[in-house]
Amino acid sequence: MNFHTRKWIKPEDLNPNGTLFGGRLLEWIDEEAALYAIIQLENTRTVTKYMSEINFRSSARKGDIIEIGIEVVKFGSSSLTLACEVRNKMTREVIITIDTIIMVSLDENGKPKPHGKTQVEYVKDRLAD
């Protein structure tokens, strides 16, 4: 699992219990999955199709630093399936896991578009020397 994004938990991110609001965390995860898929599939018209069960395993509090990890599970013809784990950066305690997030590449008419990808690519490898 690659952890690319870190977030600092601020007062506006908290629920009435003083812990990280789950909706805010899911917003961050959805954005991270979209950015990852857009870069992998080289298509800005990539959308979230499905998220599996969301397992909240622990919470985060104001001042905590969390990191969002994304991993490719498989490539479909027009989709990319990801897994996600969020953990506390300092303690490494897992906050949430999502086994399946399906992102779909769309054409200009909003229909699934085959992407032709079969493995993870890195932007640096796409650039000519």
Rank of each mutant, 00 (worst) to 15 (best):
R6F: 15
V47A: 13
S52L: 02
R6S: 12
P112V: 05
T19V: 10
I96S: 04
L25T: 04
R6E: 15
A60V: 03
M1K: 05
F21Y: 15
F3V: 00
E12A: 12
A37Q: 08
F21A: 07
A33Y: 08
E27H: 12
A33P: 03
V86D: 01
Y122G: 01
K74R: 14
N15H: 12
I102A: 01
A37E: 10
I101D: 01
I29E: 03
G76M: 09
R6G: 13
S79T: 12
I70Y: 12
G18F: 05
K49N: 06
K124V: 08
E71S: 09
K7F: 15
R61G: 01
F75G: 03
D30F: 04
A33R: 03
V94R: 09
D64N: 14
D107C: 04
M1W: 12
A128P: 00
Y36H: 11
T44F: 13
F75E: 10
T19M: 09
S78T: 08
D107Y: 09
N17C: 05
L80D: 08
M1C: 03
D13L: 05
I101K: 00
F75Q: 04
R61H: 14
A128R: 11
P11K: 08
M1Y: 13
H115D: 06
T19P: 00
Y50D: 01
I29N: 02
G76H: 11
G22H: 12
E27L: 08
D30K: 01
G18L: 09
R57K: 15
K62R: 11
E32M: 07
P16T: 09
E32Q: 12
M90F: 07
K124H: 10
I29D: 03
L26M: 15
D30H: 03
M1L: 08
K124Q: 06
L25V: 06
N15L: 05
F75H: 13
L82T: 00
K124W: 05
M51S: 09
